[in-house]
Amino acid sequence: MSNTSRIRNILRSKASKGLDKLEDPRDVLDESYGQLVRMLQQVRQGLAEVATAKKRIELQGQEMGTRHSRLTRQAQEAMGHGREDLARIALERRVFLEGQVASIRTQFTALQRQTAGLQDKERRLAERVAAFRIEKETIKATYTASEAQVRVNETLGGVGSQMSDVGESLDRARDRVAQMRARAAATDELLSSGALGDLTAAPDADLERALASVALDAEVEQQLRSMKSAGSGDAELAGSPQADGPDAWLSIGGEPGAR
């Protein structure tokens, strides 16, 4: 094989691969179906033209038949009147007309055969077009379903670019949430330790919080001492409600015996 032939084959192979990537089989099927439909239309147009020509010859034949009968009648009438000369003229014209009838009869017979042949071809081609249309739609539906299945499978398998973008967005969102939670925890610790001042707090709020904590501890210690001096953990605590009922909460935190 020469270098030119080898290069030609390589280029043809690459072109074929390129067409496979760009060519949609559904478009190819629609184009093929369109070609068949156009062929069927041409056959039907030819059939109509042949049928028109046959009808025209048929009408001419009917006119000739009418004239042939008239000439026969005229020859008989001429003989009845003893006019052999007129009868001869009528018969001569009738014989000439019979030759013309024979000619157009041959044409009419040929057109009849042609019409029958075109009708048979039109019928077979119409059946082929109908069958191709059904097969075309079936193949297109199968291809569309397979194409959709491929896209779904690629998406579920993470092969598709859209799913990759979704996964990357989800990873970024998780990282941002983790960073924000860590920052919130860190700032809480800094605020609690006093390392980070609360700009919205009132002046000396840190002292107030410290004194409140001391007061709370003192209250707890006092109640523990009261329980110890009473000698039982079930002893009545200061600020505990003295009775049950919907208004019992009003005595929480008050002096013992208060209502």
Rank of each mutant, 00 (worst) to 15 (best):
S2T: 14
N9T: 10
L11F: 04
R12C: 00
R12E: 06
A15P: 02
S16D: 02
K17F: 05
D24R: 08
P25C: 06
V28M: 06
V28P: 00
V28W: 03
L29D: 03
L36R: 05
Q42H: 13
Q42R: 13
V43C: 03
L47P: 00
L47R: 06
A48R: 11
A51G: 05
A51Y: 03
Q62W: 02
Q62R: 15
E63G: 13
M64L: 14
M64P: 01
S69I: 06
L71A: 04
R73H: 13
Q76S: 10
E77F: 09
A78S: 15
G80M: 01
D85V: 08
R88C: 04
L91W: 02
L97D: 05
Q107H: 13
T109E: 15
R113E: 08
T115H: 14
G117Y: 05
Q119I: 01
L125D: 01
A130C: 04
A130F: 10
E135F: 06
E137Q: 08
A148I: 02
V152L: 15
V159A: 13
G160E: 07
Q162M: 11
D171K: 09
R172D: 07
D188M: 11
D188R: 11
S192E: 14
A195R: 08
T200W: 10
A201D: 12
D204I: 05
A205V: 08
D206W: 05
L207G: 01
E219R: 11
Q222K: 10
L224C: 07
R225L: 11
S226L: 15
M227K: 07
K228P: 01
G239L: 06
Q242K: 06
W249F: 15
